[in-house]
């Protein structure tokens, strides 16, 4: 490790730099990067940010679409029983792993927010370019849900408590629990009642009925089919609390998966392959 000696030598004695390091000079100088190196390091930052935003925009959106996509894609799937439960449970997975990667390696409390932001932007791009411009479904039919409120709370828990276990218990629960209220605020108008053919319907039901989807017969919806009068009929809050409970475990599981993914393991390469690049086999004479 002689080659890292220079950089280690640059470590300065501890000093109180809190409240001062607005532009990050102290971080740079303590890191041992020379000004020249810092410029390339910033270029590297830009490349990494570009990669993170695009790959997780793609991977999280794919993940959410294929695990709980129908609840996200159609306004008439956004019920009180399943939607507040399955959406946050699926949506927490990548943000939790990203939290672990960014926090453990770089002490950046932004992983969950990055994931939820990339997801929401990617979703709206799809809604605009595919749902509206290509097939002509009105935006009201495909209005998505967002996980930003929960993701922000999860990042805040992490920066305040600085511990993955407490982040799971408090932040993970908050992620699942606030999904319902934070999305209901946005979608409340779609639950206004209307009368149609002598039956009650919500506006969301009407939107799904009026603009027909070839492969979405009404019965295919996995939604609440009737509820007991538990908890003062607060069905959605019961779902929200249950979602929070599952999210605690999901967060811890995916945090660990994020740690597993960020290990810098090299496996032994084949001697034949190495020999193509001029590395002599260690076994040979």
């Amino acid at each position: 490790m002689t080659s890292t000696a220079d950089i280690d030598a640059a470590a300065s004695p501890r000093e109180n730099t809190r409240f001062k390091d607005k532009k990050g000079e102290t971080v740079i100088s303590v890191s041992g990067l020379t000004p020249g190196a810092a410029r390339y390091s910033r270029l590297f930052d830009v490349l990494v940010v570009a990669a993170v935003v695009t790959i997780f925009g793609g991977a999280i959106h794919l993940h959410v679409m294929l695990t709980v996509g129908d609840w996200d894609m159609y306004v008439d799937w956004k019920d009180r029983q399943y939607w507040p439960l399955v959406m946050p449970v699926s949506m927490i997975m990548f943000p939790a792993a990203l939290q672990a990667i960014f926090w453990v390696n770089f002490r950046l409390p932004i992983g969950a927010t990055v994931g939820a932001t990339a997801l929401l932007i990617a979703t709206w791009i799809g809604r605009y370019a595919n749902w509206w411009i290509w097939t002509g479904f009105p935006f009201t039919e495909g209005v998505p849900s967002q996980a930003l409120a929960g993701a922000l709370l999860m990042d805040m828990t992490l920066i305040v408590l600085r511990n993955s276990l407490f982040t799971s218990i408090i932040g993970g629960f908050a992620f699942g629990f606030v999904f319902w209220p934070s999305n209901y605020s946005a979608l409340a108008p779609f639950y206004l009642p209307v009368e149609h053919q002598g039956m009650v319907a919500s506006l969301a039901d009407m939107i799904g009925y009026t603009f027909p989807r070839s492969n979405m017969p009404e019965y295919l919806r996995i939604i609440e089919r009737g509820t007991l009068r538990t908890f003062g009929s607060s069905v959605s809050w019961v779902s929200a609390a249950f979602a929070g409970f599952i999210c605690i475990f999901m967060h811890q599981l995916w945090w660990r998966l994020g740690l597993f993914a960020s290990q810098a393991t090299f496996l032994k390469n084949s001697d034949v392959v190495k020999s193509f690049m001029g590395i002599k086999s260690s076994v040979a004479s």
């Binding site: 971080v27 303590v30 990067l33 002490r107 409390p109 990042d155």
Partner: peptide, 28 residues
């Protein structure tokens, strides 16, 4: 929230600083 963090030196410097045990510089 993101720009509050992204404006600072990011990947490499933070990792190096963390390796030196100076977490106090990263989260004030």
């Amino acid at each position: 929230w993101l720009s509050f963090w992204l404006a600072r030196p990011l990947i490499l410097p933070r990792w190096l600083v963390l390796q030196k045990g100076r977490e106090d510089l990263l989260i004030s």
